[in-house]
């Protein structure tokens, strides 16, 4: 039988899932609750200048790219499989919508992170 190319998508899905499980809730808490409400962190933690500096640092770029791209690939695979389980098997269209979306998001994230400079 022909070897499946699914490992590519499954690995991205697995990496994204692992990352989401490890840091997803913490990110939601920090960026969505703690910083806006002024808890724990300094009020200007997520100010434009701070975030720009973070995005201009190579380590910051790597973190942001990893979070955006891998979360997207995880979501794409989850959506594709969920649609399949719910009876939507228009394979090409589903793949274009889910994986295509993740690919587009990955490219945009990469471009934006390079565009803000170093």
């Amino acid at each position: 039988m022909k070897r499946s190319n699914e490992p590519i998508f499954w690995s991205l899905f697995g990496a994204g899932g692992m990352l989401a499980a490890l840091i997803g809730p913490a990110l939601v808490f920090i960026t969505g609750i703690a910083v806006p409400l002024g808890l724990i962190y300094a009020p200007d933690t997520m100010s434009y200048n701070n975030m720009l500096a973070f995005a201009q640092n190579w380590a910051g770029k790597l973190v942001m790219f990893g979070v955006v791209a891998l979360f997207l690939w995880h979501a794409a695979h989850r959506i594709a499989i969920l649609l399949h389980d719910f009876g939507v098997h228009a394979v090409a269209a589903v793949k274009l919508f889910s994986y295509g979306g993740a690919f587009l998001g990955t490219v945009i994230a990469g471009y934006a992170l390079l565009a803000v400079g170093f």
Binding site: M1, K2, R3, S4, P7, I81, H84, D85
Partner: peptide
Amino acid sequence: MKLGYADEGFWGCTAV
């Protein structure tokens, strides 16, 4: 494993 590597093998499962 040749059978398992295929779409009809392990990859046909969606972990329900």
